[in-house]
Simulated scan of single mutants.
Amino acid sequence: MTYSADIAEAARETARVTAAVTPDQLAGPTPCADYDTRTLVNHLVAYTGIGMELRARREPHPEGLDTRDFTAEPGWQAAYTAQLDRSVAAWSEPAAWEGEVNGMPAEGMAGMLFLELCLHGWDLARATGQDYAVADATAERLLDKVREYAQMYRDYKGFVEAAEVPEGAGALETAVALSGRDPYWAG
């Protein structure tokens, strides 16, 4: 099953959030305890921008991608938006969803990339005083993916234990909490 439309919506929202980041916010804290905003942005660009397209095309990550400071480059926000467009286009191709990517079923890889895109997009929104909003169906897809991969992410120290949410919390809040983030984080 493919969910290119959910990936596209999350990419649009994450691009919107990224476009509003100001240079003075880059040193600020984020809901990810190990990342300041600059580190979060660089991770986001490397893995959900460039890496997402490369995974769809079964191409290796270039050397130094994980240490590059994209925020030091002029026009980094527009470049990231353009890269997200290429990533969305790559995952819109039926062939991207077939076979394996790095020994994992392609749908599983897409799910993990979608999860990263949404959660780190949410992290960036919170870190910069913005809201992160996707349609209910996309939030439900995210919640499904967080439930599917939460233990694996915890095993690899990508998530901490789930946070509490009140009964009746929406899918986005619940997904954020299940990933170990405080859905009400405010800095």
Rank of each mutant, 00 (worst) to 15 (best):
T2L: 13
A5G: 10
E9R: 05
A11T: 06
R12P: 11
T14I: 06
A15Y: 08
R16C: 11
V21P: 00
D24S: 10
A33F: 06
Y35R: 14
T39M: 14
G49A: 09
I50A: 07
I50L: 10
G51A: 10
M52C: 04
L54D: 09
L54N: 14
A56W: 09
R58C: 09
P60Y: 11
H61Y: 13
P62V: 10
G64A: 14
T67F: 00
R68G: 01
A72K: 13
P74I: 04
P74T: 08
A79R: 15
A82Q: 13
L84W: 10
A89R: 12
A90S: 05
E93D: 15
P94R: 05
A96V: 09
G99N: 02
E100T: 15
E100N: 15
E107Y: 00
M112H: 03
F114V: 01
L117H: 02
H120Q: 04
G121L: 02
T128A: 04
G129S: 08
A133C: 10
A135E: 13
T138H: 00
A139H: 03
L143I: 04
E148D: 07
Y149E: 00
M152V: 14
R154H: 07
E161I: 12
E164G: 12
E164N: 12
V165Y: 02
G168N: 07
G170W: 07
V176A: 02
D182M: 12
A186F: 08
A186Y: 06
